[in-house]
């Protein structure tokens, strides 16, 4: 399972970086989104991978950490997803504004 996740993160991050370096604003925004997917999966994996383990204590008393997943990275990922989503939306607005003002979708605002 680890290898699948690792390859997944790698593909996301690799494609994201490639797209980020492209000259069109639409490619840049898709690249940024892919990078944020990779980052979110990465944060999630830093809580160690466990299958079928809830991130909460099963009942009263001191629980056994071996039977539960780490809740902190899951909380962090939720925050990161929300923030990443908001930033993508904001950048999308700017992208449209730039397209309208400069008449091109090149990241430098002019074709060359």
């Amino acid at each position: 399972m680890e290898i699948v996740l690792a390859i997944g993160i790698g593909v996301f991050a690799g494609s994201g970086v490639w797209l980020l370096l492209r000259p069109r604003t639409y490619q840049v925004i898709i690249g940024l989104s892919l990078i944020s997917y990779a980052v979110n999966l990465f944060i999630f994996s830093m809580g160690r991978l466990k299958v079928g383990a809830p991130p909460i204590l099963p009942g009263p008393g001191v629980g056994d950490p071996a039977t539960m997943a780490d809740p902190t990275p899951q909380a962090l990922v939720l925050t990161a997803i929300v923030i990443g989503f908001a930033m993508t939306a904001l950048f999308l607005v700017l992208l449209l504004a730039a397209r309208g003002l400069t008449g091109t979708d090149h990241v430098n605002g002019r074709e060359d």
Partner: peptide, 21 residues
């Protein structure tokens, strides 16, 4: 301003990704 923002925002978004990693 829009042109400057087009560079400023992606740079800082990438920085935020690095921050999270």
């Amino acid at each position: 301003r829009v042109k400057a923002g087009l560079h400023y925002i992606p740079v800082n978004l990438v920085a935020s990704s690095l921050f999270l990693i």
